[in-house]
Structure formats: structure tokens, C-alpha cells
Design a protein around this nucleic acid. Structure first.
Lengths: 299, 299
DNA sequence: CATATTGATGCATGATGTGCATCAAACGAT
DNA sequence: ATCGTTTGATGCACATCATGCATCAATATG
């Protein structure tokens, strides 16, 4: 009969308590009767009180032994359940991979990676959560999320990062906008344009980075309107109230009422990175990273 | 730091999981760092999966290790509570001694023994329960009661018994009853008397034994009335509706409206015995038995 | 009284756990 | 880039422990 490592003294007692006979109990355990006697003696010595009263012909539980038995009869089974639960997690069988993404990864990078990952690991649930970059950083720090698609760069000693894409930025204009006469837009052409951008709550990190790009070129960022969601934003642009700026990854998803032109400048781009904690060496995280890195996606 | 016998591998892991440093953990456990490393390795080998990820500079919990830690931190704490609870019982510190008594022991034998026992063992609670003899036998068999005062004799291989008292029986009459002209009553004098006795539910064993005593002498037991409690019984006797029979131990407690005379016959007596299970070797039971045996009570 | 069965103990032996010395790896300071 | 410090892991010798066997005294039964 297989014994649980480390719980053999308690397990021995539980069996003797049920049998009330050392020789029968020893038989059950494939052990010599004298070895069993010594195990019980060792347990009683370490506890400092008797669990069993015994003559050469009779074994009974003391009151303390009855209480100890009742309290611990389930100990073994609960320990085995804890082992099984941990094993399932270790095998990645019931684990959940928690992935957060922001808008720019939502159209292509994240869906392709998740689809491929599920093909390879059908038993792992992927829990997806839209989250702005700043919120992603908090969630990573608090171990609420395993892996994140965020706007980069992001350098921190506690995190691994991989750059997945560097997308050039495009202006999005209403139809019949003067920009449409050009094939590409110089950033200085934007100096006199009314811009419609997502508000800080919605765009956060991206707004900061746009500010940096315009400041670096000495171009004022004239924000005429702010919108709290993409549909409202595109609606305002198509109505002729201004233009907006989006990375290439979103261009195919903006509808038929607007036109786009690339911004011709190396610094005007948006980098999408994958981020996870250095301490999180979960096999599922490693697997997902490999899948995301090697997608057949144009760079 | 004291380790729990048999749980040293689990306990070792729990400490390492908290410290995330083998040398600090080994210090806490008064163990060499290398011995601790081997314990963790042994536990992981027996489980078949990793609990910790470690480099030479960093220790983290795997997901499986986190789950195992949470499950077993609770397990260990509950085990320790079970040890404490059993120890308190073993020390007799919070143990309860459950004593059942029937009416004939209620006036003298039981109260004197309990008073004396409490003097000697102030920390042991004595839980007293009035119970008819038949109910006492059931409660003993079901381990609901530790020790009983019952009507004897009672011979059974599973029980110890001690005779505490053998009381002669007395007739109890209304004032001005013809029996009062005599100093003692012959059982045959009862042949034509109306008897008032407790009903079977209330007197049970005692009624059986009275039946036996009268049958043995060829005297019919004429039960004129039955009452369900002692006050009603004595009330009916003092009203002149009949007489009753009680053992000597109750005579001093019957009030001033009745008279008593002893029944002169060796077989007309009531034996009060102490009974407990042979398998119940609890130190409290043994102590109580010694006290009850050696009371300065007349026999 | 003889026999069978029980829990406990002494002993020799094999298995296991430990401390010490030492290693390579990793991090921080210079 | 180098050096010093600290870490978890490993080899080794030795101490400690657990076990099976033989045997014992106690107890119950016929």
C-alpha cells in the first residue's frame, strides 16, 4: 500500500485507529508489526501525549486519540487533492493565460497570435482583456495579467519586452480634403490642421507619444476636438470637423467615409510590444511568447 | 525551530515559499542550506513537478507552487490546531466527564461524589444528566455518557460495575394508616394494599425489579394508581389513596405528610451500582470511580 | 495447564539525512 | 571589464534513523 511521503506517521495512526489491531494494520501497510509499533511510539513521543491505550490483547483510542483521529481522518485526502490540483496547474491543463491588449494590437497582432496559440494548446484557456497601456502596467505589477500588448518602448528591469511591430502613422481625413492631392504628408503640413484625437482617458500613452513626436519637430499639436470612442471619432472626421492620426495597423478598419495618407517621417511611428514579468516563467507564458514572435506578419 | 514530525518536507517548502531564499530559510530552521535544498528536491521528486523556479540568485514560486502553498499552509495550521485540541483533552483541561444518574442516587451517592471530585479536579467539568436506567444503558453503549449510576445488578462483558449501595425498601403511607402500629412490615402484609407506583416510563427498571420481588414471594402487586412524577405520587399517598414503596436513600426527602416503615425481608432491597465501559480508560473516569468508591457513606 | 495471539524490545543491517567543503552562476560596485 | 559577495547545487564522509528478525511477557481461549 502506497504511503504519502512525509505523512507516514499520521497515516499509520489513522489505520491503527480504524483496525484497533497492530498486526492487521501492519499487514494492510506491508510493514512489519514491530516497525508499526515504533512509528506510533514516535508519533506519540513527538506529540507529548498518548493516542492509544493498549494491552497485549486490546487496543483502544484515548479521548485525545479520538479527537485527533476525527480531526485528521480527512487530512490525507485533502493533501492528495492539493497535490492533484497543483499537478494539473503544472501540466498546464487547467491553467488560464491572461492576455491584455490595447487597440493597436486588437486588429491583427493579438487575434492571429491567440488563434495560433489555441491551435497548439487546446486545453489552455486564454482570457482576453482590452486595457490601456497604463492600466496594463498596473495589472502586470499586481500579477493580475500574465502578458500584455502595449505601446512601446518600455524599459524596466523587472519585465521582458519584445517589439512585435513598428507601424508608420497615417493621417485620416474626410473625403475631398486638400491632403488627398498628395501621396504622403510631411509632419509640418499638420501645423495648421484641426486635429481630432482620443481623450487622455482613452488614448493615454498614445497621446503622450504624439505630443513627443510633434514637439521634437517644433510643430504645435492643435487639438480641435476630443472623442471618447473610435466610432465617434471617425464620425467627426467624416463630417469634416478635422483630421486624426492612426497607425497603419488600424487603417483597414476605418470605414468608407474617410481617406488616408501616410506621414513621411521615420520618427512618426507606433511601436507595439509584448511585455511580461521576468519572474513569471510559467510554461504557458513562454509558449505564447514563441507563438507571438513567429507569426507570419509583415513588419 | 520545532518541526512537526512527519510533515518536515511540507513545512520546509512553506518556509522557503515565504522567504524565497534558501539560506535565510535554512537559518530559520536551524539547518544547513544544503540539507534544505535536498529536502525541497526530494519533495519535488515525489510530487513529479516543480514547486519553485530558481537561479543562483533568485527563487520564485511556479503557478503549481503557489497553489500548493495556499492549500498546504491551511492544512498545516489545521493540523496544529488538531494537535492542540487533542493535547487539551489529554491533559484533562477542557475534558468533560458525562455522568448519568437515576433517582435513587440523586439524593446522596451522586451529589457527594460529584462534590468531592470537583474539589480534587477543579478543571474538569462534570456534565450531569438525570436518566432512567434503561436510557443509561443505551447512552453508555453509544459513548454519549462516560459513567452511570443505575439500578443493579448488571452483568455484561463490555462493562465494569461496582456496587455502591444496597438499600432496604420502605413502605410510604398516609398518616393514620394501620401499618403505623407496626415497627416493620412483612411483604405478605402488602397483599391487600392499594399501591401507587411510578409508571413504566418513569420507573422502568425499578418496576421490573419490584414485580420480581413480589412474584418470588407469591404476592400479587396491586397497582391502584400510577403517577408520572414524585411530587404527584407523594400527594396521592398523603391524600389516603394508597401506599408506595421507596428505597431507604429517598426516605429523608418525602416531606411531613407521610410516614414510613421498613420492609422486613432480605430480598426486598434496591442495589445502586456505578457502570462504565471497559474500553473507556480515560483518566477522568478512573478518578471519578475512585472518588465514588471511597465516599464516607453508610452501606 | 497448554496453546495461540498480541504489542513491545534488543540487535544487526541497510537506508537516509546531515554538515562541511566546494563549485559555478549571478549581481552590484568600481 | 574585473573583482568581491552571495546564492543554490553537488560530492563526500559520517551520523542518525527505520526496518525486519528473533524473542519476550501478557492475555484470552479451550
Amino acid at each position: 500500500m502506497q504511503q504519502v511521503a512525509g505523512l507516514d506517521l499520521i497515516q499509520s495512526f489513522l489505520i491503527v485507529a480504524e483496525e484497533l489491531n497492530f498486526r492487521r494494520s501492519a499487514e494492510r501497510m506491508n510493514l512489519d508489526q514491530s516497525a508499526l509499533t515504533r512509528r506510533i511510539q514516535k508519533l506519540e513521543d513527538s506529540l507529548g501525549f498518548k493516542l492509544l491505550e493498549r494491552t497485549t490483547r486490546e487496543v483502544t483510542l484515548t479521548k485525545a486519540g479520538q479527537s485527533f483521529y476525527q480531526d485528521n481522518a480527512n487530512l490525507l485526502s485533502r493533501y492528495e487533492q492539493s497535490v492533484e490540483g497543483a499537478r494539473r496547474i503544472s501540466d498546464g491543463k487547467t491553467g488560464i493565460l491572461r492576455v491584455a491588449y490595447m487597440a493597436f494590437a486588437a486588429t491583427e497582432l493579438m487575434p492571429l497570435a491567440v488563434a495560433r496559440f489555441r491551435q497548439v494548446h487546446p486545453h489552455i484557456d486564454v482570457a482576453l482583456q482590452y486595457m490601456r497601456t497604463q492600466g496594463q502596467k498596473l495589472a502586470l505589477a499586481n500579477d493580475e495579467i500574465d502578458i500584455c500588448y502595449m505601446i512601446g518602448p518600455f524599459d524596466h528591469s523587472e519585465y521582458h519586452t519584445i517589439t512585435l511591430a513598428t507601424d508608420p502613422l497615417y493621417v485620416v481625413t474626410p473625403k475631398n480634403h486638400p491632403f488627398l492631392r498628395k501621396l504622403a504628408i510631411d509632419p509640418h503640413d499638420l501645423a495648421n490642421e484641426d486635429l481630432i484625437l482620443g481623450d487622455m482617458r482613452e488614448w493615454g500613452e498614445y497621446r503622450w507619444r504624439l505630443n513627443d513626436m510633434f514637439s521634437s519637430e517644433g510643430i504645435p499639436l492643435r487639438v480641435a476636438l476630443e472623442a471618447s470612442n473610435t466610432l465617434a471619432l471617425i464620425g467627426l472626421v467624416s463630417a469634416g470637423l478635422g483630421i486624426t492620426i492612426y497607425p497603419e495597423s488600424l487603417i483597414g478598419f476605418l470605414g468608407r467615409n474617410v481617406e488616408v495618407r501616410p506621414i513621411r517621417h521615420d520618427a512618426f511611428n507606433s511601436r507595439t510590444i509584448l511585455v511580461w514579468k521576468r519572474t513569471n516563467r510559467d510554461v504557458q507564458v513562454r509558449s505564447f511568447v514563441e507563438v507571438a514572435k513567429h507569426l507570419p506578419v509583415r513588419m
